[in-house]
């Protein structure tokens, strides 16, 4: 009856939000992956003769420094590109970690129910009773500065987000007769979980993952702003903002550009996540079809 111009699995590409988000994220990802090839300068190379050069298009700009230089004469464009590497590393690794812990516990809790559910549910409650900012600062103090500590802190703070939301979805799927039917044809618990329940929760998982990446980028920027992320020999967006504060009156560009980078990246992740939620959620998809 219905026309099927595209395969069911690929239909989400038709959404404008998903396309826009994917393009933004894709650009940032390419910048991060190919930073050494794209960057015109070494991001740490100082040139104290040409400090605070404005971007190339404004008066006094220098075409060799496309987006100008900072107070130590380092190329802003190169620093932004390398900063994307840090942001993306943290976003992917931290979200993956939070998702693995959260999703595993959520599936166990929702599927087995009873005591397992109670135990995991209380653990999440206790965990969430700490304010996230306090918890991450405590963790960072304990773990010490560094990019792996940032990743670990985000994982330890944010796994509860996955656990809470996914558990509800697992519960709904668990009540479907086809899960009982799978057990009745002889599926083991493991096979039922991976073949029957996981495919149903996957859309939500992907959506949460995408939104979590945006959150991770912001958290990394905050922590590198206060100097708890990467060391001074690496460039990160938060660090660039912190550095540019001193010269805010001489060169506003140095402040605006890293902020813009963060803005675009987070916008991309959020658009992607929101779009995916709208297209992959069968309830919303049904409402649209009617």
């Amino acid at each position: 009856m219905r026309k099927r111009p595209m395969r069911k699995e690929l239909s989400f590409l038709r959404s404008g939000r998903v396309t826009a988000g994917a393009i933004l994220v894709g650009i940032v990802l390419i910048c991060a992956l190919f930073a050494p090839l794209l960057a015109p300068h070494d991001p740490q190379e100082q040139n104290l003769i040409t400090t605070l050069t404005p971007p190339a298009w404004s008066t006094g700009g220098d075409p060799t420094y496309l987006l100008g230089t900072d107070s130590l004469g380092r190329d802003v464009l190169s620093r932004l590109l390398y900063g994307a590497r840090v942001a993306m590393t943290v976003a992917v690794a931290a979200s993956l970690g939070a998702m693995l812990i959260g999703a595993t516990l959520a599936h166990l809790a929702g599927y087995f129910g009873g005591k397992v559910d109670w135990l995991i549910g209380r653990a999440v409650d206790v965990w969430m009773s700490f304010p996230p900012v306090v918890l991450s600062l405590v963790l960072m103090t304990g773990l010490g500065a560094g990019i792996s500590s940032v990743i670990l802190a985000i994982v330890l703070v944010d796994w509860t987000r996955f656990c809470r939301v996914l558990r509800a979805e697992v519960l709904v799927t668990r009540r479907q007769d086809y899960v009982a039917a799978a057990r009745l044809v002889g599926f083991s618990h493991w096979r039922t979980l991976t073949r029957e329940i996981l495919p149903a929760t996957m859309p939500l998982l992907i959506t949460l993952f995408s939104i979590e990446m945006g959150i991770a980028v912001i958290v990394e920027a905050i922590l590198s702003f206060v100097g708890m992320s990467v060391g001074a020999n690496q460039s990160a967006w938060g660090q660039m903002i912190a550095d540019a504060r001193q010269t805010i009156y001489e060169s506003g560009w140095n402040l605006v550009l890293p902020m813009l980078a963060i803005f675009v990246t987070v916008l991309g992740f959020n658009l992607l996540g929101d779009g995916l939620r709208r297209t992959l959620d069968p309830r919303l998809a049904q409402a649209r079809e009617l």
Binding site: Q176, D177, Y178, E196, P199
Partner: peptide
């Protein structure tokens, strides 16, 4: 399960979409 099987009431919910 070797000797007994069940057919569920609601085919909508009993078949994995």
């Amino acid at each position: 399960l070797e000797s007994a099987q069940m057919v569920f009431q609601d085919p909508q919910s009993a078949l994995n979409p």
